[in-house]
């Protein structure tokens, strides 16, 4: 199972171990963590929610896209759901390839694609309230729980 949604803390080494291969000269690991400050606003904790069965399928699709683009690549991705505190690990992506440049590029591709197509959402909890974060660029929050007219053209 190279692509999974986890309800418990992610063990980074277990994700890395999935992409170990004799043909690889490089493994890159991306670890996405929960940040305390976003534009000066203090986050207390996050809740991540997933459409789990579809999220796994979309992670598999990203892996497939990477293997088509970067020869000899192997990929493993685990994304956590539930309540996460500051500094907790939300996502781990491991990519192995024969040469290092491909491992860096393919790993970057994976995280950008996750923010586009994988049905996972985060709800930010602050001292003064909570909001579902509304777009994959993490720049727009919907105070009313829905996008405003001005958000729709971004």
């Amino acid at each position: 199972m190279n692509y999974s949604i986890a309800k418990e803390p992610i063990i980074v080494q277990e994700v890395i171990d999935k992409v170990v291969q004799r043909e690889a000269g490089a493994i890159t690991t991306f670890i996405g963590t929960v940040r305390e400050l976003t534009h000066g606003k203090k986050t207390l904790y996050l809740i991540y929610e997933a459409y789990e069965s579809m999220a796994v399928k979309k992670l598999e699709q990203i892996g497939k896209e990477i293997k088509e683009r970067w020869d000899g690549a192997d990929v493993a991705i685990t994304h956590r759901v539930g309540k996460l505190d500051i500094t907790d690990i939300a996502v781990v992506i491991a990519v192995s390839t024969p040469h290092r440049a491909d491992a860096y590029e393919a790993n970057r591709y994976a995280i950008e694609r996750i923010k586009e197509i994988v049905p996972i959402w985060k709800k930010e909890h602050w001292e003064d309230g909570q909001k579902w974060i509304g777009n994959q660029l993490e720049t727009v929050a919907y105070p009313t729980g829905k996008p405003e007219e001005s958000d729709l053209n971004e």
Binding site: M54, H79, V91, I111, K115, W121, I133, N135, Q136
Partner: peptide, 29 residues
Amino acid sequence: AAINEEFASDEDILQAGDTIAFIPPVSGG
């Protein structure tokens, strides 16, 4: 919208037994 875990277009038609999910802009990662 997603039908049976694949993104769908506005014109796609549901068949008996299909599951439709509404997917707000995602914010994982």
